[in-house]
């Protein structure tokens, strides 16, 4: 078993109105940041997951997204797994 650092990124579905993103875009515009478009606001969930392999860690994170972390009606998610931070337990 290894510990993997998993980053789950959740954002509003493409095409879905994101009023928060719109408000931020408006604020950026009034601060003089030109040429900014399509501001979308989502969230990031960081997890430490214990799993036998990177693939298994991704599979488990995907299940977590489907069941709880993301709402399939309104949100898309992306998952990034980084190298094991430390090898836990004994080798089989």
């Amino acid at each position: 078993m290894s510990h993997f650092h998993v980053e789950v990124r959740i954002k509003p579905r493409a095409g879905l109105l994101d009023p928060e993103g719109k408000a931020i875009q408006h604020a950026l515009d009034s601060l003089g940041f030109e040429g900014v478009d399509n501001v979308r606001v989502g969230k990031v969930v960081d997890l430490e997951v214990e799993a036998p392999s990177e693939k298994e860690a991704i599979d488990r994170a995907t299940q977590m997204c489907r069941k709880l972390l993301a709402n399939p009606v309104t949100e898309d998610f992306g998952i990034t797994v980084s190298e094991p931070t430390s090898a836990g337990g004994s080798e089989a």
């Binding site: 009023p19 928060e20 408000a23 709402n71 009606v73 309104t74």
Partner: peptide, 17 residues
């Protein structure tokens, strides 16, 4: 009820924020 799947759809942030 929407989150649980007993009703379809979802409730998003008010468009007025």
């Amino acid at each position: 009820l929407c989150e649980s799947g007993l009703l379809p759809g979802a409730l998003l942030r008010n468009d007025t924020l």
